[in-house]
Simulated scan of single mutants.
Amino acid sequence: MSRFLSHKTFATPPFFRDSTRTPCSLSERKILSLLIRRPNLTLAELTSLSEFSQQSISRLIKGMIEKGILIASDRVATGKRGQPSLSTSIVGNYAYTIGISIMTDCVAIALVNLAGETIAETTHIPPSMSRKEVLNLIKLSFDSFTSEHNIEHDTILGAGVAISGYNLGGRSKFNTPPGLGEWALIDIDEIIAEELNLPVWVENDGNVAALGESLLGTGRDYENFAYLFIAAGIGGGIVINGEMLRGSNGNAGEIGLIVPSNMYPRPMLDLLHTMLQEKGADIEGISDMLAKFDPEQPGVTDWIEKTEPALSLVVSAIAAILDTDAIVLGGRIPRSLARMLIEKLKIYDDGRRSEPRAMPRLTISDHTGDGGVLGAAMLPLHKYFYSTV
């Protein structure tokens, strides 16, 4: 097999190019986008949720079953007279992807199938976040996953990477935070593609977390939401009409920049780590803090009181500017801490007359742990199976 550097060097990934598989049409992607958000829909339900006629739905489903992408499941009783409807589901082992989340103190790697199911996942805390250390752990995890689960290389569509930092003009170069200095201003996709012999896509961690949430979490109920990615720092992503909003330079959703850091302490886990240590907590870093997290420990309520004003301004700005259905708290923040924070947040409003404007729902991500690794794995799948634009 010939090696390649990145997804930019070819028009079609080897997953399609070197096999009999063919990329999905726009209509097929729309069907798949419905099915991943609502598994096991019947033909009648797909017709109701889409703009297609029943005849078109039947034709599309039949074609994707023949390709091996979908499977007809057991018949489902509809409560109506006549023949029960067949439900349809995605064949997970049709394709796989690798998700990689490069954080300031650790790297998470996951193997995910076409249906969005996590087959394997691991997190490593290396001595440093140098390129050599991280690449070695990525390759070791990749080899372990594929060997243990008998995954053939030609069934892997590609790898997605989530990383903190500002995107530089929509490319795979990022201006990363200090802890990721060796990953700054380089072609991340080419470096990891060379290691894995796979095409690679790279996005800001907040963007990919929002993408994962759109396909496999809050997006099942809301087409428009903002995702607050709370980790060592704070960022986020925006989903409008079910699609990730990247912006002109790939930096839409940099929610933390709404408030200046010299005026408001931002709700970052770095700050929480510092405040807990000041209260005597025996924690070595963010990963250790999260593993030992107790919402009752001294310093937690102090952190909430200190950071609530900034986050209240952020959610108020989102509500006023974007008018989303929901605002999701996720990233690496513990669910118990997210719940405590939501109880204190305020969305500012004039409260005019007896019918105030509708406000977004404040909610917690459906995914525990690192919100970036699953979203990263969905990047290649989104490009070739789930994007509807």
Rank of each mutant, 00 (worst) to 15 (best):
A226T: 10
G233Y: 07
A319R: 06
V300Q: 06
D302H: 05
R246T: 14
G219A: 09
L322N: 08
G233D: 10
G250I: 05
A252F: 03
M244G: 09
K306D: 06
E296Y: 07
D288R: 08
S316Q: 09
T307H: 03
I304T: 05
V314M: 15
A317E: 12
L257E: 12
G219F: 05
Y222I: 02
I255D: 00
A291G: 11
G250V: 04
L245Y: 14
T307C: 15
F229Q: 14
A291M: 10
N251V: 06
L290Q: 01
G235L: 04
N249K: 11
P260H: 13
S287K: 14
L290K: 00
S261Y: 12
R220C: 06
G217C: 01
D294S: 14
L211N: 06
E296I: 02
E308K: 13
D302R: 14
G242H: 03
A226G: 14
N207V: 03
V208W: 01
A317H: 12
G253K: 09
P265V: 02
N207F: 02
I304K: 06
G206F: 08
L269Y: 07
E213R: 09
L216Y: 01
K306N: 14
V300L: 11
V202G: 00
L245K: 12
D302K: 13
I240F: 15
T301L: 10
I286E: 10
W201T: 02
E203K: 15
E308C: 11
M263D: 09
Q297T: 13
S287P: 07
S316V: 04
G250F: 05
G247D: 04
I318H: 02
G236Q: 06
L313M: 11
L311S: 07
W201M: 05
A210Q: 04
N224S: 09
A252P: 09
T274R: 13
V300A: 10
L228Q: 02
D288K: 08
N204W: 05
G237F: 10
Q277N: 12
D282P: 15
M289Y: 08
Y227A: 01
L228F: 06
N249W: 11
N262P: 00
L276K: 07
V200L: 04
A209C: 12
I258E: 01
I318W: 03
P260E: 10
A319F: 04
V208I: 12
I258H: 01
E284S: 15
E213P: 03
A317V: 11
N251D: 08
E254H: 15
